[in-house]
Structures are given as structure tokens and as C-alpha cells.
Design a protein around this nucleic acid. Structure first.
Length: 569
RNA sequence: CGGGCUGUGGCGCAGCUUGGUAGCGCGCUUGACUGGGGGUCAAGAGGUCGCCGGUUCAAAUCCGGCCAGCCCGACCA
């Protein structure tokens, strides 16, 4: 390919509306252009990279027995009504009608349709199955951002496994775990697998693959010894222990005028340091009030509450609801003596006594509270948000919190969809059993962005060889026709050797060509100018470390071929 | 959905307060010189100033409405 015939619109300056490094570099390098919020066109260079990612994914999916499909993007609403998601999924699901008034939707994922196809299987003998496709999803996200990292329209590889029992599911899940690990390695990223919350997908177990990045939207908790890693939404840990002095009397009410926060109370009274307070939060769960108790210095992780309660319908109570329920405003709330309301408490409060909490009367608190004695708990529920430095459960080392990008997610789905859609097979005893499903996703565009986030410098992108749009660029310097002829020869020989090469034959100055080459991030650059050619040599520059070596004109194709192959495609 | 901000040649921006000729840099076209890290000179092309309405003799500029995009938060299968 000749650059002079290619559409690679590089930009000299940063586009105005871009924050994330990957967004800037993919725009400037001529890989992508924005169409509207959360919607990007892939330009030829971008599409070449996307194709590389897709091919690697296909390779690894096929290796574990995957069969590739291609399913529609517009679905009938009827099937989604059967699984309940037509109504359950709020906001991001785009619904519309065709000319006959039939309800339709844009696919946000493909569980329904793959399950619908799986209805055709009738015997356990046909299992296991592993089906996948690479297809467009449209999720009308409230806030797309950071270029390709969070978009509304995107291509995802999603696969679905079907088994007769959970043992089969476990096997397929583990196979995906291995396949995903290989995929991200081939993408040139170090992805950390972490325990994740399954959200409303209703699965039993799920693992997210996370790549560290300052622009990531998720946080993970990591043990420095590698003993533990989890999404912050689900992470658990030890916490600093507190020894209480005994207080055998009943709780004692005392006046706390104007005090509304944990820290104000801790400052005002020596016996009420934050670890000796009970934090009382009021939530509305499925329309019913719920008190959530935490140690004063601990934060609530709402997702853990949602997961623990098993319902998505959870929100903090409003100020007026709180006052009506407990008779005081936030800041003076407590659970002592409260009856008729569900109360859950974080295990960090277990066995604690001589605690301080609100008296459910503005400007008054209670001291000497014994959690088990004085509060009518319904249950213990770990809802504490892990903080940086909290000790690891297995080795007690202080854990770290890291910002990450979610590049892949694997789920044990269970039978939610197969049951709703009647996807059953007969087992060995002739009994109908719903297929046990798993679902597994990798977003192409987000991974492209994540690769750039983890492979760049101040000059531009540094593509790993495996996913580079071209392996090598041949830069022709000077207007000399002999040099150009020699460059064309090198280009043609590389191409016949199966190397992906772009010939920069533009009538540009050397600086422009070098800057563009570095911005776009070709792993290798061959520089050919009259000077070297007179001596029968060319220069070979490695993008990653910036080193340049001199190679003879005759050997350059061999040298480059070896370098491309040894980079482990 | 709440808060903040922005829409002016392909890209990045100024002009708006105080209404009157639409401007700069980059890019683009042609020519000359130059030719190993975004070069120089000369001559050009290119804009319904996001859209609709209002005020005014006159609107990029003032007023109202709408649309789009960005950032923070909420949200996020």
C-alpha cells in the first residue's frame, strides 16, 4: 500500500474534545472519527487494527471449540418481553416500531436470540455447545465519554455456552478464562482477572478482566502478594479491630446541639471517635424502608448492598421519608429501639459495645450502645467499602486500589434465559432440563483504546506487532527517483513475504514523515534515503525503544520478516 | 436527569463586553527555492458565524426558544 493513495488523515494538533490519551492518539493518528456522542467511524487504519483484534479473538474462541454465528442487530420486542427485559432494562434500550406497529429494539446484547436458537436442541447428547459472534450493540448510555472507552454503539464479541449441568458450565467458564487470558496477552496488555459483581444478569459467578489506566472507570482492590483481586464493588477485606471498654448500663442519651456528622461528633466527645460510632443509613428497597448500619469510619458500597439483598430496586431514602420514619434528620439517626423496620448491619459491628449513635431526635445521641443487645437486627450483611491499605483476607498485607478499564467479562448465567424461552433438552433419564448458560464478552473498540492506553509515549502510539495496522512503514526520503525505485522494490518484496507494509511515498519533508510514523505507531520503520542507499544500506528503527540499526539493502526483507514473526503473532 | 462550558472555512482558535467590511495559525491549490525531524517565499481557493424566531436602518455580536457536543456528578448488563 502506498501512503499517497491511502486515506490516513493525521492531525497535527490535538482535537478539542478529547481528554483520554487513547482518544487523542486514535483521532490524531487517523484511526477514528466521531459521528455523534458515543459513536465513532473506524477509518481504514482503525479498521485494520479492529480486524487484528477480531482475528485474534476468533482464533482463541475457535481453539476452545467456539462456532461463529452472525445474529441480527434489530430484534423483535416479543422475545425480550418473554425474558422480562423489555420492561426491566431502563433507559439504555432503544425501542421503536416498524410500519406495522411491531415492537422492535436495538440489541444491547444477544442472550435472547442465542437462547431462542438453542431451543432447537433437544438432547443432552448435543451438548456442550459454544456459540459466538462479533456484532454491533447499541446501548443508549446516559453519558458516553473518553473516545472509544465508553460509547453507545460498539462491536462486541459475545459468546454463549450451553450445558446440561453446572459442571459443564464450569468447564466452559474455565476454558473462557484461559482463552481470555491468552487474548489479552496477545493484545499486548496485562489484564488482571478480578471477582466481579454479577449485577442484574443474575449469574452466580463472574470475572472481569481489568487493565490499569488513569482514565479507567472502575476500581479494583489488589493484594500486593497476588493473593486477592476484586472489583471494588464486591471486594472484601479485614479491617482495623477495635477493643471496647465495657459499659454494662443501658444506653445513655446526651445532648449534641448542632452536630450532624460523624466527624463533628468525634471531635466534640472523646468517647465518640469514628470507630466507636454506628453510622445509620436509610434505604428504600423494593418500596420498603431498610436501615443499614456501618461502623462510623466505614463507607457503604451500594453495589454490595444490592447484591446482598438480591434486588436492583434500591435507593437512598429522601430527607422527608427519613424524618417520617425515624422522627429526626440525617445526622441524628440510630437503630436503637427501632422496631417494625428491617435492619441490617455490617459485620464490622459484630460484638461491639459502648458505641455511640443517633437518638432519632435532632441534637441528641446515645452512648453505651451494645449492638446485639440494643438493636433488633434482622441480619448481618457485608456492605463495607474496602479502603486502600485494608489488610488482605488471606495474607493480611495492606491492599492497593487501582483505576482500571474493564476489557472483558465472563459470566455464569445459569438458566434464566433458557427457562424463559423454553430452551431445554432431555437428560439421560428423559427429563426436560433447561440449558445451563454462560455468557462472555469482549468489546473490540474498548480494547483498541485500552491497548493504546497501555502502549504509547509522548510521540504517539506504540502498537504491539500483533495488532499493528501495518507491521512496517517504508519511509522514502528525498525526491530521488532511484531511491523511490529501491523503496518500491523493498515494499514489494516485503509484501510478497507476507509482511504488511505501508510505503510512505508522499512528497513530504522528513520531519513530517517521521512524526506521522511515530504518531501512528508502526512497530518498525525502514528509512531509505540517497545517503544510505549509495552505501547499499537502509535504516531499521524500532518504535518501542527508538533504536536504529543499519541493515544492508539485500538483507532488510529477511531481517524485518524475522522480526515480525518472532514478535509472536 | 442536575451543575459547568462550547458551537465562527478541513483542524485549532480570536472576534461577541461596546451591533456596522468575518480574521489568525495549521492544512489545502499553483509556482519557485529547499530536501534526514512538522522549511521559506509568492499568488490563490475555501465560511448559510449550529438552527429558528425576535429587537434594530443594520446581528457572529443583544434577547428568546431549540439542537448538538464536551467536562463534573447521578447512572452504567
Amino acid at each position: 500500500m502506498r501512503w499517497s493513495n491511502a486515506f490516513i488523515p493525521t492531525l497535527r494538533e490535538d482535537p478539542a474534545d478529547s481528554e483520554a490519551v487513547s482518544h487523542r492518539l486514535l483521532m490524531r493518528g487517523g484511526f477514528i472519527r466521531q459521528l455523534m456522542a458515543g459513536s465513532y467511524s473506524l477509518l481504514p487504519a482503525g479498521f485494520r487494527v479492529a480486524t487484528k483484534l477480531s482475528d485474534i479473538i476468533r482464533d482463541e474462541m475457535n481453539r476452545i471449540g467456539g462456532q461463529e454465528f452472525s445474529l441480527p442487530v434489530v430484534h423483535p420486542g416479543e422475545i425480550w418481553k418473554r425474558t422480562g427485559r423489555w420492561d426491566d432494562v431502563e433507559g439504555i434500550l432503544v425501542k421503536f416500531q416498524d410500519r406495522r406497529g411491531t415492537d422492535l429494539l436495538l440489541a444491547i446484547t444477544h442472550e435472547e436470540i442465542f437462547s431462542h436458537l438453542a431451543v432447537e436442541m433437544s438432547s443432552y447428547k448435543q451438548l456442550p455447545q459454544l456459540w459466538y459472534h462479533l456484532q454491533t450493540k447499541f446501548r443508549d448510555e446516559p453519558r458516553p465519554k473518553a473516545g472509544l472507552l465508553r460509547v453507545r454503539e460498539f462491536v462486541m464479541k459475545d459468546s454463549y455456552s450451553f450445558d446440561v449441568d453446572t459442571e459443564g458450565l464450569d468447564v466452559q467458564f474455565d476454558a473462557h478464562f484461559d482463552a481470555y487470558s491468552r487474548i489479552f496477552e496477545r493484545f499486548g496488555m496485562s489484564a488482571v482477572p478480578v471477582d466481579a459483581s454479577s449485577g442484574v444478569m443474575g449469574g452466580t459467578e463472574s470475572i472481569e478482566f481489568m487493565v490499569p489506566s488513569l482514565v479507567g472507570e472502575d476500581h479494583i482492590v489488589k493484594c500486593p502478594n497476588g493473593d486477592y483481586a476484586a472489583n471494588l464493588e464486591k471486594a472484601v477485606s479485614h479491617f482495623q479491630q477495635v477493643t471496647d471498654e465495657t459499659w454494662s448500663r443501658d444506653p445513655e442519651r446526651f445532648s449534641t446541639p448542632g452536630i450532624r456528622t460523624i466527624s463533628e461528633l468525634a471531635e466534640a466527645f472523646e468517647f465518640a471517635s469514628d470507630v466507636r460510632q454506628i453510622k445509620t443509613l436509610v434505604y428504600i428497597v423494593d418500596g420498603q424502608p431498610l436501615l443499614v448500619l456501618l461502623r462510623g469510619d466505614h463507607e457503604l458500597m451500594e453495589q454490595k448492598l444490592i447484591d446482598g439483598l438480591g434486588t436492583q430496586n434500591v435507593r437512598p431514602a429522601h430527607e422527608d421519608e427519613i424524618r417520617e420514619l425515624l422522627g429526626a434528620g440525617a445526622g441524628s439517626l440510630g437503630a436503637v429501639g427501632v422496631s417494625g423496620l428491617s435492619i441490617v448491619a455490617d459485620p464490622a459491628l459484630e460484638g461491639r459495645c459502648n458505641m455511640t449513635t443517633g437518638a432519632n431526635e435532632d441534637d441528641f445521641h446515645l452512648r453505651g450502645v451494645d449492638v446485639t443487645r440494643d438493636i433488633a437486627l434482622e441480619s448481618w450483611l457485608d456492605v463495607r467499602k474496602v479502603e486502600a491499605g485494608d489488610p488482605c483476607l488471606s495474607c493480611s498485607a495492606p491492599m492497593e486500589i487501582e483505576r482500571v478499564i474493564e476489557v472483558g467479562h465472563i459470566f455464569k448465567l445459569g438458566i434464566k434465559y433458557s427457562e424463559a424461552l423454553g430452551a431445554t433438552v432431555l437428560d439421560e433419564e428423559g427429563k426436560a432440563r433447561p440449558l445451563v448458560m454462560g455468557s462472555y464478552g469482549i468489546g473490540i473498540g474498548r480494547n483498541m483504546a485500552a491497548i493504546v492506553e497501555s502502549n504509547h509515549d509522548d510521540k504517539g502510539i506504540i502498537w504491539p506487532m500483533s495488532v499493528a495496522p501495518w507491521h512496517v512503514v517504508v519511509v522514502v526520503l528525498g525526491g530521488d527517483s532511484d531511491v523511490e525505485a529501491a523503496a518500491i522494490q523493498v515494499h514489494d518484496r516485503l509484501e510478497s513475504a507476507g509482511i504488511e507494509v505501508l510505503l510512505d511515498d508522499r512528497r513530504e519533508r522528513a520531519g513530517v514523515k517521521f512524526h506521522d510514523a511515530e504518531l501512528i505507531g508502526f512497530p518498525l520503520r525502514i528509512t531509505m534515503g540517497p545517503r544510505g542507499l549509495a552505501d547499499g544500506v537502509v535504516e531499521l528503527t524500532t518504535r518501542a525503544d527508538g533504536t536504529t540499526e543499519t541493515v544492508s539493502f539485500e538483507n532488510v526483507v529477511d531481517t524485518v520478516s524475522r522480526r515480525v514473526v518472532s514478535a509472536d503473532l
